[in-house]
Design a protein around this nucleic acid. Structure first.
Length: 470
DNA sequence: CCACGTACACCC
DNA sequence: AAACGGGTGTACGTGG
């Protein structure tokens, strides 16, 4: 096990670099190309009958909603910009906006929500949330639109894109994302739904050949690990050295709670051995202490503002004032992570001075906006600059891991192992069943050893026959 | 008819 | 007043 030192040589002749280093980046990007070629070649198997069935179920749901809402919509007609009346179409966001805000006036005494650009009414689900109980047809219409999206983007389209072996070959592009991430298109397999129940069912359709298994291995908190490494923030280092839960520990540090006591309580609740009082105590911790810390922790590398935090918390049902959000970020969160704040400020200053920022391998991101006189533009550049070192270095880790795994996979051959997908901090492979457990350790070890840092880089793995199980 | 911008949804 | 980094795909509406 190698230990970190500045500039040390890594696999494939790549090295850590604190200056712009295009040759180093070329080596890194070329090193992961063979595995990208494997992704393209193998493709992932799709359970087409399952997906077709899911598509039918979604259509049924939509038809029910159409029947339910018909009585409210009736013969309402949409007025075009030229004043003509045309039949109402539930799929059009403009038709919907006119019906909701001009016919039904669901906004009541509130201002009509407008989109940032242009002068259209905003009808995103987030904005519609408060209007859901203002008219009985609104929840149904929202659900119809969500279903339409799933159908149009996934369930009705993916079955048309498979090869004769029911396998889906996405195209990975290594040259579009400025942070060195890969992107996926035709179809995009990096945005398959996971959060909602119906959406996650789409993942069930992704599977493996009989006698094989899907293996997923992903880095744990890789961007935060890089942030801890770069900042040398003592609290962050301590959390990752001890292998603690980042957000639990943050909440404990921010609110002065004992981490071990919280973990004990957490375990009691998980094992269903907690009293009513203990359960309620833990739920309060989760909602009012852990959740804000988690939200800030998630947003901090994106340069989240108090307004951004407020919006994020609101979507979780927590309504804080701007002042409280502001105070929480500056006085609570950054009071604990002082060196993390110092690191971000260093990156902002660097970007302001040079109009660019480097990751830990010398990948350069140009941010000329950081020098702008206009505050909005400048802050936009600074947020990009603040995020780039972590997002880009994290890509470095997985790209080197891919390069390290390439000869191992080649030696085993495609009767044993087939690399299928990379999803930013995660690799998905198809492995013959009797070998998958053993191989999961190999993949994890290569990922963890790819970029030795001043703290352990951890990864975890899952095995299943369906993507939804991973 | 096509190309393009916008809004919105999905992912890490 | 105040949107949070990186992506792709879809439908819609407009303008050539």
């Amino acid at each position: 096990m190698q230990t970190y030192e500045p500039g040390m040589e890594l696999y494939g002749g790549v090295h850590y670099s604190d200056y712009p280093d295009p040759d180093n980046i070329t080596k890194m990007d070329l090193g992961c190309l063979p595995m990208i070629a494997d992704f393209h070649k193998f493709g992932i198997r799709l359970d087409i009958p399952f997906l077709n069935n899911l598509n039918s179920r979604i259509e049924t749901i939509q038809k029910e909603i159409e029947l339910e809402t018909e009585i409210y919509i009736g013969s309402y007609q949409y007025r075009t910009s030229k004043g003509a009346l045309i039949p109402f179409s539930i799929g059009s966001r403009d038709h919907l906006a006119q019906l909701l805000f001009e016919e039904w006036k669901v906004q009541g005494d509130d201002p009509v929500p407008l989109t940032p650009k242009g002068r259209r009414f905003e009808v995103s689900e987030e904005i519609m949330e408060p209007f859901k109980d203002r008219h009985p047809a609104v929840p149904g219409i929202i659900e119809w639109h969500k279903s339409e999206k799933l159908r149009n983007t996934y369930t009705s389209v993916l079955p048309l894109q498979v090869d004769s072996d029911s396998r889906l070959h996405t195209q990975f592009n290594a040259t579009v994302a400025s942070t060195g991430r890969l992107s996926s298109s035709n179809p995009n397999l990096q945005n398959i739904p996971i959060r909602t129940k119906l959406g996650k069912e789409i993942r069930y359709a992704f599977t493996c050949d009989p006698g094989w298994r899907l293996l997923s291995a992903d880095y744990s908190q890789i961007e935060m690990v890089w942030a801890a490494h770069r900042s040398q923030d003592p609290t962050m280092l301590d959390i990752f050295r001890r292998g603690q839960d980042l957000h639990d520990r943050t909440a404990c540090s921010v609110f002065g709670l004992d981490y071990e006591e919280v973990q004990a309580l957490k375990k009691l609740v998980a094992d269903k051995l907690a009293t009513v009082a203990q359960t309620s105590e833990f739920n309060d911790f989760k909602q009012f202490q852990r959740l804000p810390c988690k939200t800030v922790g998630f947003g901090v590398l994106y340069g989240q503002t108090a307004e951004g935090l407020q919006a994020s918390l609101a979507s979780e049902g927590i309504f804080w004032t701007i002042e409280r959000c502001e105070e929480f970020i500056t006085q609570k969160f950054f009071a604990v992570y002082t060196l993390l704040k110092a690191m971000l400020d260093r990156d902002y200053a660097y970007a302001t001075r040079y109009g660019l920022i480097c990751d830990e391998f010398g990948r350069v991101r140009l941010v000329p906006e950081a020098k702008s006189q206009l505050k909005r533009i400048r802050n936009e550049g600074l947020r990009k600059a603040g995020n780039h070192p972590e997002q880009s270095s994290a890509q470095g880790s997985i790209k080197i891991a891919m390069a390290r795994l390439t000869p191992i996979c080649r030696k085993l051959g495609d009767k044993m192992v087939r690399p299928l997908l990379q999803i930013h901090d995660q690799l998905i492979l198809e492995v013959i069943a009797p070998f998958v457990e053993e191989f999961s350790h190999v993949v994890r070890e290569e990922m963890e050893a790819a970029t030795p840092l001043t703290i352990p880089v951890r990864s975890s793995s899952d095995i299943g026959e369906r993507w939804a199980e991973l």
